[in-house]
Design a protein around this nucleic acid. Structure first.
Lengths: 183, 183
DNA sequence: TTCCAAGCGGAGTCTTCACTCCGAATAATA
DNA sequence: TATTATTCGGAGTGAAGACTCCGCTTGGAA
């Protein structure tokens, strides 16, 4: 791949993360091109479809999340690692909106096993790992499942509003995830 | 207003709640007309703009929510009333999506004080009432504010996924909202 | 029953946006 | 430096959807 092509590809992806992060699916390809400082043609050569572009953006974002989470899992304190990751995912990078937008779309009719699916699974597994370690350490309630935790993360990640309010809401949820009195 | 006009208005609103509830802002006016069994012209006579139609739908929905919540507030058990209303709002009627969609839009540039705003405030107040009564009864943690509770409700209301998972997630959050050990 | 203001339907307009196409520009190689 | 395969840019195309317009229909008062 020619060096200019590679550079442009990167700039487009970065611009896409910005645009779709702000406006979700409603962001236009033209806007992405404008912010990346390239022509529309260029965007469409690298990503033949808007959908593909969004997917690429999401995969990039999810992959990063999964890696961070996994890395943190290595560290010592199981409970703290779980909570930190939870917080981080909620307030994470932008691209949240695009994530929802896509996840809400009807499943891709091209039956092709999906890259996004795969990346999302990696995130889920990372969460699962952190969760079960936290539970084994007795720092997270035992009856919580990945499904619920993952859903809570997604729900909070898409919450609009004041950052401080979101943070306090997360605190409440984490309290809900702490071991029950009876345990 | 002629009786047929009134009937059509109602049918359009009902159809709109359905369509926007399913597809959010992406639902088309044409689809609303089709489901209501009327022509597009009719839809646009009653609601001169798509935005107006969505707002009307939301106001209708929110008003209903607020009334239900207020009614429940009258009842005896403060803690139970709070929790029940919380659950109800989360799993509430459809129209959730449209709600988000609009709330996420840049504030209406027509500086007009907004009906939606007003309706949302009523819901908020109802929640506040239930919350503070629950707190006074010692059944809800004292340091929770309406902001946080309201945000949690909205976040969960927009969560996608299995109903049972959502329900369990709500249980977790409600645990987080129960009084702290030290209290 | 008659009459007409109020209401209806839906073809047509206009705008937005995803996507195509091809001549101009350029990185990489000899 | 010369050559050329690759990449770029952005005008152009087609589709979708919000909104308008106007001839036809109809509820309901006289």
């Amino acid at each position: 791949m020619r060096s200019d092509a590679q550079a442009n590809r990167d700039r487009v992806l970065a611009a896409a993360e910005e645009v779709f992060g702000e406006s979700g699916n409603a962001g236009s390809t033209e806007e992405v091109a404008r912010r990346a400082g390239v022509g529309i043609g260029t965007v469409f050569r690298h990503f033949p479809t808007k959908r593909v572009l969004i997917k690429a953006t999401i995969v990039r974002h999810l992959t990063l999340l999964a890696e961070t989470a996994r890395a943190r899992g290595e560290g010592g304190e199981a409970g703290a690692a779980f909570r930190e990751t939870f917080r981080e995912m909620v307030s994470g990078a932008p691209a949240k909106l695009a994530l929802v937008a896509l996840l809400e779309e009807p499943t891709d009719s091209t039956g092709s096993a999906d890259e996004v699916e795969a990346a999302a699974t990696m995130v889920r597994q990372a969460v699962e790992e952190l969760l079960s370690r936290g539970q084994q350490a007795g720092e997270v309630r035992a009856d919580a499942t990945v499904d619920e935790v993952y859903m809570l993360i997604r729900a909070l990640a898409n919450a609009r509003g004041d950052r401080t309010v979101v943070d306090r809401a997360v605190d409440i949820v984490l309290d809900g995830l702490s071991p029950r009195r009876s345990e």
